[in-house]
Design a protein around this nucleic acid. Sequence first.
DNA 1: TGTCAATTGGCAGACACTGACATTATTGTC
DNA 2: GACAATAATGTCAGTGTCTGCCAATTGACA
Lengths: 221, 221
Amino acid sequence: MTGLREMKKQRTRDALIRAAHELFVSQGYDATTVDQIAAAVQVSQRTFFRYFSNKEEVALAPQQLMLAHFLDVFRGRPSDEAPLESLRGALDEAWADLESTIEAILPIELHMRMWELTQNTPALLGAALLQSQANQDLLTEELARRCGLDPEGDPRPRVLVAAFVGVTDAAVRAWAHLGHESSAAARRITMSHLDQLQPALCGSWDCQDGRPEDVSTRSPC
Amino acid sequence: MTGLREMKKQRTRDALIRAAHELFVSQGYDATTVDQIAAAVQVSQRTFFRYFSNKEEVALAPQQLMLAHFLDVFRGRPSDEAPLESLRGALDEAWADLESTIEAILPIELHMRMWELTQNTPALLGAALLQSQANQDLLTEELARRCGLDPEGDPRPRVLVAAFVGVTDAAVRAWAHLGHESSAAARRITMSHLDQLQPALCGSWDCQDGRPEDVSTRSPC
DNA sequence: TGTCAATTGGCAGACACTGACATTATTGTC
DNA sequence: GACAATAATGTCAGTGTCTGCCAATTGACA
């Protein structure tokens, strides 16, 4: 399957992603037209839409790669691990593989700038949330399978994954809000937010050490 | 400010929402054009876009109303209440006011059908998630204010709200996935999901009674 | 009644996206 | 190496969303 045809397709796809990202980051997402992206790769507009079903897809392609990788890593986690620990661990592993996963297509620097832009561009953020939600469904299914629960009937895997994804998404938004921060900062912020999940829900907010307390004895704020 | 001009504007806006919803529900969202909606109210397309900045906005107008009402109710909650309890309680109150909030513009029946359609229409779901996230930011700010915390620096309000919103969104998706259920069912499913939040994160999945246990002693799945 | 300001309609145009068909390039085969 | 089968691409026309611009209409208020 390494014929000339496949290689050319792969090269065109990569070139489109690359050109699109450079244009998006330098001019903004809305200000960049599909015609510009196609022209930069010397390809017709019609061909662009054969590779990507819409303008958002080319912008979120690297994110899609990350999500797929994260899901793979999660599947490889030991099944005797606590669910939340598996999710957190898988995310940490995926972050560690960030460079090798992304650098094959784009410079990390460009990817992070694009990610920040995504969080500040409504059209893109909406699409990203949609993508994140599709991933959420897959995660829920996998978690339920792992624990031998019914993903449709039992709400608990769905609830846990929803909380997990909600918090990681919020962490990324908080990161982007700071502006021009590194990927290391993104990782650190995401992980520290996750570490607040159990204490915030199960413990008092007076203690910051992450040790959960009995809910019935907690103070209000 | 109850001049004839204001009344006419209000009536046009309501008529547009009503006509749009009926068309969306009967033909589908994508299959309905803005021209059709405008024609149904005997108004030009240009006028439609003066009332709603895009096609999604008219579809999500009732949702926007609900979110605003929920935020209002949350602000009215006693400040000595535990944060998660305030969120849960405010949501329950907002659900109770559903009819009086919505019926002024639309039949509840139509609203619920539209809501279900929203969850199954990617373009709409993306916009809805965006809307939900904007609301999430406001909630976080309000919660931080209430507890005297810094909404930028302290991640805990953000984390708690993210988990809360993530779970309610997931609950709605689970509801819509069942198909043609009542609003009472939506309320019940949402609340039961919220009740799983603390146990799912802090307790073992072997007990379903909602009583959190010490994390260190829980069993894996 | 007449002026002022807000609302609306109509029009042209940019841009995202799609279907149909002709053209070109690659592959496997003789 | 020529040749048919197949896949990728280009071109073109068209639909639908959304915007800027200007003229016409309508309500507010003296």
